[in-house]
Simulated scan of single mutants.
Amino acid sequence: MIRTKNLWIIPLLGWILFISLPLTIMSREPRPDIQLVLLTSVSFWLFFLLYFLLFYFNVLVLIPKLFLKQKYVWFAGIFMGGCLAIYYLQPFENLIFKKFHTQEEPRGHEERFPGPPPRPFGENPPPPPRPASNNGTTVDFVSLVLFVVIWVVAMAVKISEQWRLSEKRVILSEADKAQAELSFFKAQINPHFLFNTLNNIYALAVSNSENTAESILKLSQMMRYITEEAMEDFVPLDDEIACLRNYIDLQKLRLNAKTSVSFEITGSARGVRIAPLILMTFVENAFKYGVSNRNESGIVIRVDILSEEVSFFCQNRVFETNIDLDRKGVGIANTKKRLDFLYSGQHTLAIEKSDEMFTVHLKLSAV
């Protein structure tokens, strides 16, 4: 599943980094307590609030209303207007630098005369000096750079969020499709399996077999599990194993002496949950494609329950004459989709076909 836990840590770290930048710049000041003074000043937090509001106004309003709706001219115009506003307002220069910057007077040179040196007798005094013109405007590069960074980060955050939403929609769509295919798959397999099993039970009843009542009970339990409990995303592993055991026992009713079946369970399933019919798909394929009335065959099924994972192993011979080309691989393809959705990053599936042997090894994280 998609996990969003602790996503608040990322923006928190970003704002801590933002606060540290002006503190680092002002740390060159000769005052030893300059950083503490900044953190306790109103002007510093006004500076922070300005960029905080710019960031979330961009994330919540400008990008959704303009950029994501392809109104790029308006979006670019507001960006340029913001740059001009920062250029003239100079928030870092006016709120922080001018207030806390210390001007150091040059030392080592003392004037001997309080005024200008004396002039020779009769010399006209020079004209008074013109006031120095200050036509040049100081550029607040710190504020401009922070504005551009805030803008770019806001776009990255929003675009990443949209990408995650799109990816989630695709995954949910695939999951819905997989669920629909699962329902279709069950609608196909259940009547086919039901008819064969009923025929086998009929044969038991005709022969007055003592296994008739037990077979009917197993079929009833299995059909109840498939039609009712298997609608949930996760079910107790005990129920899934019980369904597998009933299915295998009912399949054995039609097998002859040429086919051997080994079904082993190790570990405790108490408290462990699993996606329903994940294992059933591979077991059903083993009986469908790995049984022959003329050749020796064997089916090996093993479930190992560990502390943090469930390991499933299934192996059978493959008889090509048993393969229905119209339905080949439908169940396994559907199961892969369900695994990708329900166990994203928490499972490994290895399927091998060699020397007429079909092997499935599945590992799931315990839920």
Rank of each mutant, 00 (worst) to 15 (best):
L36R: 14
P30N: 11
T24S: 08
F44C: 12
K5C: 09
K5I: 14
W45D: 00
V37D: 12
L53P: 07
L38A: 13
W15V: 03
V42M: 14
W15A: 13
L46G: 05
T4G: 06
V37A: 15
T40H: 14
P32W: 05
Y51M: 02
L50C: 04
I19E: 04
L17C: 10
Q35P: 03
S43Y: 06
P11E: 01
P32T: 04
R3N: 14
P22H: 09
L54K: 08
V42T: 13
P22Y: 08
R31W: 02
L17N: 05
F52P: 00
L50M: 09
I9T: 11
V42I: 13
M1C: 10
L12Q: 10
L46C: 05
V42D: 13
I10L: 12
Q35F: 02
M26Q: 05
I34Q: 06
I2T: 10
L53H: 09
P22R: 09
P22K: 11
P22L: 12
T4F: 12
Y51N: 09
L7E: 06
T24D: 04
L39W: 05
I19W: 00
V37C: 14
I10E: 04
I9G: 03
P32G: 13
F47C: 07
I2V: 14
F47Q: 00
Y51G: 01
T24G: 11
S41Q: 08
I2R: 06
F48V: 14
L53W: 08
P11N: 01
D33Q: 12
L54E: 05
L39Y: 07
P11S: 06
L54G: 08
I10M: 11
P32C: 07
I9A: 07
L36W: 03
I10R: 08
I9E: 09
L38F: 06
I19H: 00
E29G: 14
W15F: 13
P30M: 10
L53N: 03
S27R: 08
L21V: 15
L17F: 10
T4N: 09
R28I: 14
F52M: 05
P30W: 04
L7M: 08
G14N: 03
L53V: 11
W45I: 06
Q35K: 12
P11Y: 04
W15R: 08
L13N: 14
Q35H: 08
I10H: 06
P32Q: 11
V37L: 15
E29I: 02
L12H: 03
S41W: 03
T24A: 10
W8H: 04
P30R: 06
R3V: 14
Y51I: 04
P30D: 13
E29C: 11
L53K: 06
R3M: 10
I25C: 05
S41H: 00
L23W: 02
F18E: 00
F47S: 00
G14M: 04
R31A: 15
S20N: 09
F47R: 01
I34N: 10
L54F: 15
K5M: 12
L21F: 10
I19Y: 01
I16Q: 04
I2G: 02
M26W: 06
P11G: 01
F44E: 01
L39V: 07
I9N: 03
L36D: 10
